[in-house]
Design a protein around this nucleic acid. Structure first.
Length: 158
DNA sequence: GCCAACGTTGGC
DNA sequence: GCCAACGTTGGC
């Protein structure tokens, strides 16, 4: 089993949205970046755990955990003309964009803010904390996963 | 709302 | 294949 971090704008889909329907498998769609797509297509597997990161909000940070409940399949929104994710150049015979399904696992009591993550030296290899980073699907190492979990445990005691 | 950083596009 | 122009991301 591997670990990941997925970015989402909470206006679109938040950890709270997942938590409201904890048994539902949510389509994780709209990934339109090749590096992120390649991770989804080639490496994300059923059962993997995912940090859900809220971006473009105050404060940005990791809000909780989800689990992969369906591995790579064609993102249906690329073929839906009225979707904002529609891609006229994608061919149904060879779909360009990939989706997965996720399911709620856990919401952190407190959001683990980007500001706090940046202060942890051992996390400085994560693309997330790098200036200008835009990768919306990224791998998380075992060590990083454990470090981040320990931070939530600490912050939740405060 | 600003803008730096980055990825993509398309002319050449 | 280069690279300027453009559009998007996402923190601030």
């Amino acid at each position: 089993m591997a670990y990941w971090l997925f970015k989402t704008e909470p206006d679109e889909l938040s950890i709270d949205d997942l938590a409201v329907e904890p048994e539902r498998n949510f389509l994780w769609d709209g990934v339109r970046n090749y590096q992120a797509r390649n991770f989804l297509r080639d490496q994300v597997q059923l059962g993997d755990k995912v940090f859900i990161y809220h971006s473009s909000c105050k404060p940005p940070g990791i809000a909780g955990i989800a689990r992969i409940t369906k591995a790579a399949y064609p993102d249906p929104t690329q073929f839906q003309p009225n979707s904002s994710y529609f891609d006229a150049k994608s061919n149904p015979a060879a779909p360009r964009w990939i989706a997965v399904d996720v399911k709620f696992e856990q919401k952190f009591d407190l959001i683990l803010t980007l500001d706090k993550l940046k202060k942890i030296g051992t996390l400085n290899q994560m693309p997330l904390v790098r200036k200008g980073n835009r990768l919306s699907v990224m791998p998380v190492t075992d060590d990083e996963w454990c470090t981040i979990l320990s931070l939530t445990a600490l912050s939740n005691q405060d």
